[in-house]
Amino acid sequence: MSDRQTELTQRAAELAEELAEAAVRAGRAAEDVSLVAVSKLHPASDIRALAEWGQTDFGENYVQEAMAKQEELADLAVNWHFIGGLQSNKAKFVAGNFGLVHSVDSRKLAQALHKKAESLGVVQDILIQVNIAGESQKSGITVENLPQLAEEVREMDHVRLVGLMTMPPFFNDPERARPVFARLRELKEALEGRLGAALPHLSMGMTGDFVPAVEEGATLVRVGTRIFGARPPR
């Protein structure tokens, strides 16, 4: 095992243990929380090293970079997550190539994913990204417009809504993000009642705030820096 693989797997193992402990503290099963290793801007060799160790879920932000990695790593049985902002004109490259798209925030984008998925004869799983704090620099639909978008997505046969995603404001104290995570859980529960369908996933929590996210119900935690170290410049 190379020094880099040892470093990556040790970090991932420590993180997995912390995620499991947070879940148990919240009265949940450790297996209810999945780690999405955010591999954007890191080489395919890092992904291969972690996949050989047992990491299965990887998150990418940039379409062209992600597709190049998918081609290079086609022999690996991993789950690809698209977690970055996505323009509708690039949806055709994402639908069918990612197990889950975390960042749907408009009907236009959902329709673009639906159209491509329909042409491929597949159903694309998606999350709706909610901008709970109303930050102008971040993507995500408003809380007020979430129910309408969810209803519209439910009418599309080739996209399947499976939950919600959010990115809270940056806080030095991770506890300050807890109300945002709790609010997303409440929104999910309200939508489940409205739609009459289960929404199994809450994608929330990153390197600095994953503990309160898990304690508030996260099922998917997106962590990059803690595993891979500082990202190289793009």
Rank of each mutant, 00 (worst) to 15 (best):
M167L: 15
T219M: 08
K69V: 13
A29Y: 10
V180K: 02
G99R: 13
A49L: 06
N97C: 10
H158K: 10
I47K: 04
V223W: 02
P147A: 03
H114R: 09
E31T: 14
L191W: 02
R4M: 07
F210L: 08
A23H: 11
K108L: 13
L8A: 02
A91W: 05
D209C: 10
L100H: 04
E7A: 09
A91K: 05
M204I: 05
N131H: 01
F58N: 02
A68T: 11
G27N: 09
N145R: 08
Y62N: 02
G134I: 04
A68S: 12
S203I: 08
S39Q: 06
K108N: 15
V123Y: 01
Q70V: 14
E155Y: 05
L127V: 01
G140T: 12
V101H: 14
E186D: 09
H114K: 12
T6P: 08
H158S: 09
E7D: 14
L73D: 06
F58Q: 04
G224M: 06
H102C: 05
T142P: 04
T166F: 07
V180C: 08
T225N: 12
P43I: 00
G196V: 10
V162Y: 01
G205H: 06
A20G: 14
Q124W: 00
S136M: 04
G217E: 06
A37E: 10
A117I: 10
A51C: 10
K188N: 08
G27D: 14
N97Y: 06
L184V: 15
P168D: 02
L164G: 10
G121W: 13
S119G: 07
V78S: 04
S88W: 08
E144I: 11
E21T: 10
K115M: 12
L100Y: 11
A51S: 09
V38L: 10
A230G: 08
H201E: 12
G193N: 10
K116L: 01
E186L: 03
F228M: 06
D57M: 12
P233A: 14
E18T: 06
